[in-house]
């Protein structure tokens, strides 16, 4: 088992921990970014073949890495970026209304 997969696990769990333990909205958004990057790292890792070249076939090649996860990674990056942008926009709006970034202090909705 390669050590890099452990990096994926660490990043994933770090992201989850950041989301569930932090009270600060901005830090929660950071947690989502960490989570997203762990999944992108996983995609890149599963596409890797030892000794492979990039999947651009303009010259002689022998081993090429798997192109599908790279395409999926691009999709994931775009979607993750969009979600992060929307989250930040909502955060700006919430901060303007409540003048705080603490999640506990803006819980008007309960039950």
């Amino acid at each position: 088992m390669q050590i890099s997969y452990i990096a994926v696990i660490i990043l994933f769990c770090l992201g989850i921990y950041t989301i569930i333990s932090n009270k600060n909205i901005i830090k929660m958004v950071m947690g989502f970014t960490i989570l997203e990057s762990s999944l992108i790292l996983l995609l890149i890792l599963i596409s890797y073949t030892p000794g492979g070249t990039a999947p651009i076939l303009d010259r002689q090649y022998e081993i090429v890495v798997d192109p599908i996860p790279q395409a999926l990674a691009l999709t994931t990056i775009v979607i993750g970026g969009s979600v992060t942008a929307v989250m930040l926009a909502v955060t700006i709006k919430l901060y303007k209304r409540y003048r705080t970034l603490n999640v506990d202090k803006l819980r008007k909705l309960r039950g």
Binding site: P55, I56, L57, D58, I68, Q70, A71, L74
Partner: peptide, 17 residues
């Protein structure tokens, strides 16, 4: 296309894009 990632993104899986 000789860039296979592009051909996956814009042809095989263009619907994802």
């Amino acid at each position: 296309a000789i860039n296979i990632v592009t051909s996956v993104l814009y042809d095989y899986r263009a619907f994802d894009t």
